[in-house]
Design a protein around this nucleic acid. Structure first.
Length: 681
DNA sequence: ACAGCTGATTTTTTT
DNA sequence: AATCAGCTGT
């Protein structure tokens, strides 16, 4: 902040660029504010301007807390706010900002003692949490019986649901996991031990970051102190917060009630994580005196796109926000493209992408969206063949790939030899080492003062002798005084890991390339600790991030799950696999609530488009488990594409459509094969 | 006692 | 494609 010679009029000049509703929201004074903002109504801009406004009015940036849902949104918001501030005041200011989890992490380290934690706690990712559950489950002997025990993923999902939804285990099982109801007692014991183990090892999982934060605020004195750090709290994507987060916000406003939340109930797509629109509806009750601002003018999409998406969301049974109106008349109708099969869909999408590219829309301003990450697999192959670069968001993240986790586990052990989860993982890569031997090696290392090099002295696993020795040699190189830079350490681990990888995986080449990328990333770091903690807290979000340092003018097509596309916009958007079973997903059609959420997903996807929207679906799906036979089934277009919606779109088809009935009708009448055989009888 | 293999089963979305 | 229970061989 500091010295500012500009007069008031100049200082707030940017306010004139806002519409009246936005300006009301931005200039709202003290007290709670709920901004109901439809898709593309300038929500980010409004929030960024509000931050700038508060600062211009004298609020210390360090006393503003900005909570967002995704890391991407946090960065976007902070940089935009900084830009507005700089324009208005010439100052550079930095507010507290980040995801709930990241801020939780930060605050818990400051208030560790009050939270009953050791400030050195480490954060487990989801895979680690699953592995830990798996070990405990094994200890408990939860196998056999007449029915299969829920898989580790499911166990973690159940646990997470209980925590995030603040619901009891029996309730959660009944409502969301009825097929696991038989295991209630075992699950309860599993979770009890899981919590105990985490506390013993001083580790927190993602949910703990919220849970401990919430509990910390349960103490009135602590809550007053923490909330006293901030004059204003602002929250983005409020429709996607869960009950724990709502409770946290209440605790964070013990001192004053300056809180701004922004949300759109039509874009609530995270109920599987316990998010509830109720938070938005109940907000005025939780914060009496709430002012409400509604943003209804859409600046993003051309009129015909908005007409279609308004029709789409009109099917929603529970809806509070109004229809949007466009500030951008003209433009083309969205296209609904029926494709012969997936190949035709890929060809169509690529054709159109290139066409737009020729017309001057760079690849990075075009996006292909889909319900589930695997749905882009064949498209990715095709893009690869044609040398079209792309960046994929969502789905399996780089760090979750088995081979990457393997390599990272080695580094983690070097960093913290007490990390049992990492040891457990890497030791089992070796011949003749399973869970039992791994435990014994870990105990052996611990007895030797937690020196990773001591692993080579373990003699209980004859088949793994050489590998353990190789491990010890590598550890000696990496831990040598003076040390190696992180990139060299990764290179050294790669050398150790290469033979193990070859033995373990079918096509090691692609996986090796990933590890080379990891080495490149490590090259940007000077310390291993920073490298590892960044990987944990701010992992590369897309597989494309890893293809080395991005060149300035390089252009990539964006591929993204719908969930990861939230808050983004592109000139041209392709929603692929818009067939029933994919959207709505077959996995989410059990209850009306689930189907409603799938509808909102379709809405989120389609409202990302500014100028061009294509909705494509393949008529025919081949069954991959019979690659050589012509086994296929016919799909239906998504149930959300009702006649009212379709009426506002342009129909089109791609790929030769066979007249299946006609030809099969003719074939049935004559058996040509039999006729030819009969020539030789 | 243990590792490693086999074949059945399941398959979303993310901090 | 990954997970997991049960089986088999050391």
């Amino acid at each position: 902040m500091g010295t500012d010679s500009r007069n008031g009029a100049e200082k707030y000049a940017w306010l004139d660029e806002l519409n009246p509703a936005q300006r009301r929201a931005v200039t709202h004074g003290a007290g709670p504010l709920l901004i109901v903002a439809g898709a593309g109504t300038g929500k980010t801009r409004t929030l960024a301007c509000r931050v700038a406004y508060l600062i211009a009015r004298g609020t210390d940036p360090g006393r503003i807390l900005l909570l967002t849902f995704t890391r991407r949104a946090a960065q976007e918001m902070l940089s935009r706010a900084a830009a507005v501030i700089e324009r208005g005041t010439g100052a550079t200011a930095r507010a507290w900002g980040g995801t709930f989890h990241a801020i939780g992490n930060r605050l818990l380290r400051i208030y560790a003692k009050a939270a009953g934690l050791n400030a050195e706690f480490t954060v487990m990712d989801e895979g680690d949490a699953e592995d830990l559950l798996n070990v405990i489950r094994h200890d408990m002997g939860l196998h056999g019986r007449e029915k299969r025990f829920p898989r580790k993923r499911t166990c973690l999902a159940v646990y997470s649901r209980c925590v995030n939804g603040v619901e009891s285990l029996p309730e959660v099982l009944k409502r969301f996991f009825p097929w696991c109801a038989d295991w209630e007692q075992d699950l309860k014991e599993l979770f009890r031990r899981y919590v105990a183990r985490k506390q013993e090892q001083n580790v927190l999982d993602y949910d703990d970051l919220l849970l401990y934060w919430m509990r910390l605020l349960g103490d009135e004195r602590v809550a007053r102190q923490i909330s006293g750090r901030f004059d204003h709290v602002l929250v983005d994507e409020y429709q996607d917060t869960n009950r724990v987060q709502a409770e946290i916000l209440r605790g964070m406003r013990r001192g004053n009630d300056n809180i701004t939340v922004v949300g759109d109930d039509a874009q609530s797509i995270y109920s599987f994580r316990g998010a509830t629109v109720r938070n938005m509806l109940d907000f005025p009750r939780h914060f009496p005196g709430t002012a409400i601002a509604a943003l209804e003018q859409n600046y993003r999409s051309v009129q015909p796109i908005l007409e279609t998406t308004n029709r789409l969301i009109a099917q929603s049974r529970e809806r509070y926000t109004k229809d949007l109106w466009s500030a951008r008349p003209g433009g083309a109708k969205p296209r609904l493209v029926t494709c012969r099969d997936e190949d035709a869909q890929n060809a169509y999408v690529i054709g159109r992408v290139l066409e737009h590219y020729e017309q001057g829309i760079p690849l990075r301003r075009q996006a292909v969206l889909f319900r589930a990450a695997y749905l882009s697999a064949t498209l990715e192959v095709e893009l690869g063949k044609r040398n079209i670069r792309y960046q994929k968001y969502g789905g399996l993240r780089f760090l979750e790939a088995a081979h990457v986790k393997d390599l990272v586990a080695v580094l983690r052990v070097m960093e913290n030899p007490r990390d049992r989860i990492a040891w457990f993982r890497l030791l089992q890569l070796m011949d003749g080492v399973g869970p039992a031997t791994a435990q014994r090696v870990i105990d052996h290392v611990q007895a030797a003062g937690n020196d990773p090099r001591a692993a080579s002295g373990f003699t209980g696993a004859p088949a793994a002798q050489d590998q353990l020795r190789a491990f010890g040699a590598m550890a000696a190189d990496i831990l040598a005084p003076g040390g190696l830079p992180p990139a060299s350490q990764v290179e050294r681990v790669r050398r150790f890991y290469a033979p193990l990888l070859k033995k373990r995986y079918e096509n090691p080449r692609a996986r090796e390339r990933d590890l080379e990328s990891l080495e490149q990333i490590a090259g940007r770091y000077r310390s291993r600790r920073k490298f590892l903690s960044d990987l944990q807290l701010d992992p590369p979000r897309s597989t494309g991030d890893l293809a080395g340092p991005p060149l300035k003018d390089e252009d990539w097509l964006v591929l993204s799950t719908i969930h990861s596309a939230k808050g983004c916009e592109w000139d041209a958007v392709f929603l692929i696999h818009a067939s029933d079973g994919c959207l709505p997903s077959d996995m989410a059609t059990d209850t009306p609530e689930e189907i409603e959420e799938e509808l909102r997903l379709a809405y989120v996807a389609m409202t990302r488009a500014k100028d061009h929207l294509y909705v494509t679906w393949p008529l025919r799906y081949y069954h991959t488990w019979h690659p050589h036979t012509d086994r296929h089934s016919y799909a239906q277009p998504s149930r959300f594409l009702t006649p009212e919606v379709v009426a506002r779109m342009e129909g089109e088809s791609a790929g030769e459509m066979e007249r299946e009935d006609e030809s099969s009708g003719l074939a049935a009448r004559r058996d040509i094969a039999a006729e030819i055989r009969s020539m030789w009888e």
